[in-house]
Amino acid sequence: MTEPSQAPLLEVSGLSKVFETPAGPLKAVNAVDFILREGEALGLVGESGSGKSTIGRLVLRLLEPSAGAVRFDGTDLAALPPEAMRRLRRDVQVVFQDPWAALNPRLTIGYQIEEPLRLHTSLSAAERASRIAEIVERTRLSAALLARHPADLSGGQLQRACIARALVTRPRLLVLDEPTSSLDLSVRAGILELLGELKRDLGVATIFISHDLGTIKLICDRVMVLYLGTVVETGTTAELFAAPRHPYTMALMSAHLSPDPRQRRRRILLRGEIPSPLNLPGGCVFASRCPASLEACHAQRPPLVALDHARSVACLRAGDDLASLMGAHT
C-alpha cells in the first residue's frame, strides 16, 4: 500500500475556496496549485487571513473546495469511497495551534493518544500499546503523563501529546497549523527540535503553516508565500530566503526581526492598506502596498510563472531588478 510511486504524495490543482458570508462571497483561496513529495516539508507563510489554514483544512478534507482537486497518492479525495476515507484519516494527520482546545479536558492523555488507533486501524490492544510506548518515547513525553488529564500538563507537554496523537497512526502526511505560536519561547524551542528530528527519522511529508520565518527556515525544504489567498511566490527554502523575487516576499523578509541587534537590516517600508477579501482588486493583489507597482499592475492579475525549475513568481515585473527598486532602507 505504501510502495514508493513516481507520483507525488499530494497534488493540489486549481484549489479555490469561497465562503458565503452575510457580507457577500469571501474569496479565501484562489486557484492554488502545489505538489508535495514523500518526506518533504512545505512551509506556508503569509499575512493573517491569507488562506493558510483554509488550505490546510481543504487538504485534510475538513472543508469542501469550491473548485479544484486534491489528489493524495494519485487518488482524487472527492471521489474516495468511505472505506478509503478511513484509511486517509490514518494517513493524514493534523496538529493545530492551540493544544488546550485540541484535547478533551475530561479524558486522559493516554486515552486520547490511543484514540486514532482505535478509530482508524484494526490493531490489537497489545499492538496499540506498543505503538503508544514507541511514540511516547519519540516525543519525549514521560509515560507517567499518560494517566493525567490535560489540565495537569504544561503547554509544551500538551503540544507534545497532540504531536504524539497525530503520529501514532504513522501518517504519511502531517499538517501543522502554527504548532508553536501559542507556546512560550523556551517551550517552543523544544517542540521545534522534536519536529526536526521526526522529519529526519520518520520521513513524514509535512505542510507547515507559520507566521514565523525563522521557524519556517528551520523546518521546511520548500516555501509557498501567500497573499490574500493567492500564491505570490514559491521556491526552495534556501533560494527563497537568499534571494526573494516577489516584492511582497521581499517586504516580509525585510520585516523579520532577527534576535541579533548587530545584524543590520535592509528594511522595505510599506505603506497602504491590505484590501478586503470580500472585495479583491482586479489586478495584482499586492498592488495597493507594492513599492514597485506600475499602472499595468492594477489592470491585470499576474499569473504564477516559473523562473526556473524551482522558483515561481506572480509579478508583472519579475524580470526587472526589483531589489533596487524596492527602496530598502538600512
Binding site: S186, V187, A189, E193
Partner: peptide
C-alpha cells in the same frame, strides 16, 4: 542565556534548545 538560546535562529546555528521546565 536560556531565553536567547531558544530562538529559531540560534537553534538553526546549531545551538541546543534549552530544557523548558515548568513555570
Amino acid at each position: 542565556q536560556a531565553l536567547l538560546a531558544a530562538t529559531p535562529e540560534r537553534i538553526e546555528a546549531g545551538g541546543k534548545a534549552p530544557r523548558a521546565g515548568l513555570p
